[in-house]
Computed example of a mutant assay.
Amino acid sequence: MKEMGNRLEGKVAIVTGGGSGIGEAICKKFASEGARVIVAGFPEDPVEEVLKEIQKNGGTAIHFTGDLSTEANAKRCVDLAVSQYGKLDILINNAGVFPEVNLLQDYSEEAFEYMLKNNIKTAFVMSKAALPELHKTKGNIVSAGSEAGVIGIAQNTPYGGTKGFIHAFMRGLAVEQAQFGVRCNIVGPGPIDTAWTHESTGPMDSKMVKTMKQATPMGRRGTPEEVANVYLFLASDEASYVTGATYMVDGGITLAKGPVGEEADSSMKSQPAGQLDLEHSKEGHTSIRK
């Protein structure tokens, strides 16, 4: 069993999109810090495997499978947390899709509708369902934004639009929900080493992958665990005076111009080893499900 921390001791957290990529890392990081975690995702996602891996390492978790863009499933997920663990302290809106890379004139309406459903509606209905419980615990919500939601990215313009919604949505919630003691923040990943940023498993081609690394001042993709570390801080009581904030975890890409990654120091170009056993970082669905 791995050594456990206590930064989330006694907390109950729902993590959407928890079966792979960044979501897997968040679930395992939170569990390793004492949280009781609901690993939520589609039935096609490896949520049960993540659950077993958490339990194997001494953590506490259960899983929920279903389409969380529906109000009924969102309520069932929140009800599961409360019935199993008595409360809800943290909602992580991590679920999202990245189905297509294309010029806007060629971008499919099917992909756009798919993103509206999974990137926007899921965050809306999950936040709505969770807030009554978060009011009781003075809890918090952390949602997944993106570099694309801040600066926009060519050939990803509809995706950036969905993430721009999340940035504005969460800032509005932060102001609105402070009267109930609920904090609301955003984590904005840049290029992360998941299925989305590899030619073999996502929609990017080899030119985009090369350009992505060149444009990142640190000269590499981030790791899911590096992103999960920031979620951990924002979800913990250490961030008690942080609300309405956007924490970019992007290796500096939103500030960069040109192929600056080629000049990065070798110490920056090497990914940290990390502490989590992430078995599903290159899994997750990026294509459209019928």
Results as ranks from 00 to 15, higher is better:
residue 198 H to C: 03
residue 96 G to E: 07
residue 93 N to P: 00
residue 214 Q to K: 10
residue 175 V to F: 15
residue 200 S to F: 04
residue 87 K to H: 08
residue 100 E to I: 03
residue 74 A to G: 01
residue 203 P to D: 00
residue 211 T to R: 15
residue 187 V to T: 03
residue 187 V to F: 08
residue 113 E to Y: 07
residue 100 E to S: 07
residue 192 I to A: 00
residue 87 K to M: 04
residue 144 A to V: 11
residue 129 A to W: 11
residue 95 A to P: 02
residue 131 L to F: 15
residue 124 F to Q: 11
residue 206 S to I: 01
residue 125 V to W: 13
residue 155 Q to L: 15
residue 203 P to V: 00
residue 109 E to A: 08
residue 167 H to E: 11
residue 163 K to P: 01
residue 122 T to W: 01
residue 128 K to Q: 13
residue 142 V to D: 14
residue 142 V to R: 14
residue 165 F to Q: 08
residue 168 A to S: 15
residue 116 L to G: 11
residue 150 V to M: 15
residue 82 V to Y: 04
residue 119 N to A: 01
residue 114 Y to K: 05
residue 100 E to L: 03
residue 73 N to P: 05
residue 131 L to G: 05
residue 161 G to D: 01
residue 182 V to P: 14
residue 146 S to A: 11
residue 90 I to C: 06
residue 83 S to I: 06
residue 106 D to L: 14
residue 122 T to F: 02
residue 188 G to H: 14
residue 99 P to L: 03
residue 187 V to M: 06
residue 110 E to W: 03
residue 162 T to L: 09
residue 78 V to N: 03
residue 204 M to R: 07
residue 194 T to R: 05
residue 171 R to A: 03
residue 86 G to F: 10
residue 137 T to Y: 08
residue 137 T to F: 10
residue 126 M to S: 02
residue 179 Q to W: 03
residue 108 S to F: 02
residue 210 K to V: 00
residue 175 V to L: 15
residue 96 G to Y: 09
residue 119 N to R: 01
residue 200 S to T: 06
residue 207 K to M: 12
residue 160 G to E: 14
residue 186 I to C: 12
residue 96 G to M: 07
residue 94 N to P: 14
residue 74 A to V: 01
residue 114 Y to C: 03
residue 95 A to Y: 12
residue 208 M to T: 09
residue 87 K to W: 02
